[in-house]
Design a protein around this nucleic acid. Structure first.
Length: 485
RNA sequence: GCCUCCAUGGUCUAGCGGUCUAGGACGUCGCCCUCUCACGGCGGAAACAGGGGUUCGAGUCCCCUUGGGGGUGCCA
């Protein structure tokens, strides 16, 4: 049995979108699952669309995601070059071979004539189809015009009144009437092949056995197969994959503000979480498992689990995956990973970052949301003493002031400044008062943080701030209360 | 318009003729825990698009309708 060879063939038009990444993922998984080769090919036949740095962005994203390719522009291989523009010279001879076989023809029609034709079809409410005007040119005329240097394209000669069909492993047998198929352009007037032609030639010459690509190619695949048949080439196995949508109507796209893979990374999402989440957007392992490493995905991957309908991207569920991945990190790893994200918010040399990591980890879905939660640590915020009043805690400004005044000497007397010691001291005080924890802890936490909500409790905050800062804040808050009363 | 594909809760999905009073996850709602915010625990609401067939029996097969996607470029 021949070795499975799959390819991911993006065009470098910008950055790696989640849809592209997912296509690459499935393509990669299928190759690995079958001990095959995963090939990266850059489809840059459209010179107009060249974007600076786009190829590097593809490399970067793929590597980051762990989707290592066996052959490609930068790693080489036996079927190179792997960039279409560098293969430019090999397409024309293939097209000419087709012309000889009567399966393609030179076309000299101008843009103007084509536009006029298109307008006519549109007026009649019909789908545009090239009228094969140039297919009827005699060989001599073609040679003459070619010799005169007249611009030309080469078109596929699709037979009339016939059927073109193929089988897709997901969508099954698909057959269309060739009368609905246009004579698509194979070679453009600039000498470059169109995607339509290049992909066929490249997939064949690169020995690609399984063509996995977006379902937008589903309707042109019959035409590609006419080409395979004309050459006498073996058709590849086709697996068309449905797109990732932003909502029911719109495909996910950077143009509309949807995040690219690197955007998500920059927002504080873990690459493993992203890859895991998008893997499940349109693919199911068949059981209830949701969390996979890349290797586990390879083991579990099966084309049968691919969905035929588009999948809507849910940012909330991505967050959930990221949260779960963050919770699974050990504290050391979490601490190391979180530090760059909080360095701008607080002076990390001033606080026990290990303790911070312990406190923050269960409250963190995405790294980028950490910094805003820590502002109160750096500097005591300005706040309204109304915060001390809490109905459920049965506290108000008066009770708070009393508690703070009584607490300060107790805390000042704690021999070793630790959360445990603080806890013991305050708990003893609460027991002596015979009140609820909240009656004391609510005002304490407000007095220390100035915030209604904090990612830690009173003891933790006091521990983090240290003796001096804690006592200073308590003193200032008590004064503030006194002034307000 | 024409060609073509798809169709289970708000979202991702399991289901491949009886085991479905339709399972899981996210989200959502309620309760518990609780010094806040979270975490966590428990519980709830929520779907087979509609209509015809086929069959003893249909979420599962067929047809139509509806809805949605894709194509209809010298873009990929």
């Amino acid at each position: 049995m021949q070795q499975v060879r799959t390819r991911f063939a993006p065009s470098p038009t910008g950055f790696m979108h989640l849809g592209g990444l997912r296509s690459a993922l499935y393509t990669y998984l299928y190759a690995r699952k079958n001990d095959g080769a995963f090939v990266l090919r850059i489809e840059d036949t459209d010179q107009q669309r060249y974007v600076e740095g786009a190829v590097e962005a593809i490399y970067r994203s793929l590597r980051m995601a762990g989707l290592n390719w066996d052959e490609g522009p930068d790693v080489g291989g036996d079927y190179g070059p792997y960039i279409q523009s560098q293969r430019k010279d090999m397409y024309l001879p293939y097209a000419q071979e087709l012309v000889k076989k009567g399966k393609a023809y030179y076309c000299f029609c101008t843009k103007e004539r084509l536009d006029g034709l298109r307008a006519q079809y549109e007026a009649r409410g019909e789908t545009f189809k090239y009228d094969k005007h140039c297919a009827h040119l005699c060989a001599d005329e073609v040679q003459t015009r070619l010799g005169a240097g007249e611009p030309y394209v080469i078109r596929q000669n699709v037979p009339d009144h016939s059927q073109a069909d193929f089988d897709d492993v997901l969508f099954g047998h698909i057959a269309v009437d060739t009368d609905t198929l246009d004579d698509m352009i194979l070679i453009k007037s600039d000498g470059m092949p169109t995607y339509n032609f290049a992909n066929v030639v490249d997939d064949h010459t690169m020995g690609i056995t399984h063509v996995m690509r977006g379902s937008e190619y589903l309707s042109s695949t019959p035409k590609y197969n006419l080409l395979y048949d004309a050459f006498g080439w073996q058709r590849p196995v086709y697996i068309h994959m449905s797109p990732i949508m932003a909502d029911a109507h719109r495909k996910l796209s950077k143009r509309h503000g949807d995040p690219s893979f690197e955007d998500l990374l920059n927002q504080g999402y873990l690459k493993e979480a992203i890859v895991n989440y998008i893997a499940l957007l349109g693919w199911s392992p068949g059981d209830d498992r949701e969390f996979f490493t890349l290797d586990e995905m390879v083991q579990a991957f099966d084309l049968k689990g691919l969905s035929k309908s588009p999948a809507v991207f849910d940012p909330l569920k991505l967050r959930h995956f990221n949260f779960t991945y963050l919770q699974r990190m050990d504290v050391d790893a979490f601490e190391a990973a979180m530090l760059p994200w909080i360095a701008d918010a607080i002076d990390t040399t001033r606080f026990d970052t290990r303790r911070l990591a312990e406190l923050l980890q269960p409250r963190c879905e995405v790294f980028s949301e950490l910094a805003p939660k820590l502002g109160f640590l750096s500097e005591m915020p300005d706040y309204d003493t109304a915060l001390f009043a809490n109905k459920r805690m049965k506290t108000d400004a008066v009770s708070a002031l009393t508690v703070l005044d009584e607490l300060m000497p107790l805390l000042a007397a704690v021999p070793v400044w630790s959360e445990d010691a603080l806890h013991d001291a305050v708990t003893a005080y609460i027991a002596g008062q015979g009140c609820k924890n909240g009656y004391v802890l609510w005002p304490l936490r407000i007095a220390l943080s100035g915030w209604e909500n904090t990612p830690a409790g009173a003891f933790e905050i006091a521990g983090l701030l240290g003796r001096q800062e804690t006592l200073s804040r308590l003193g200032r808050s008590a004064a503030k209360l006194r002034a307000a009363l």
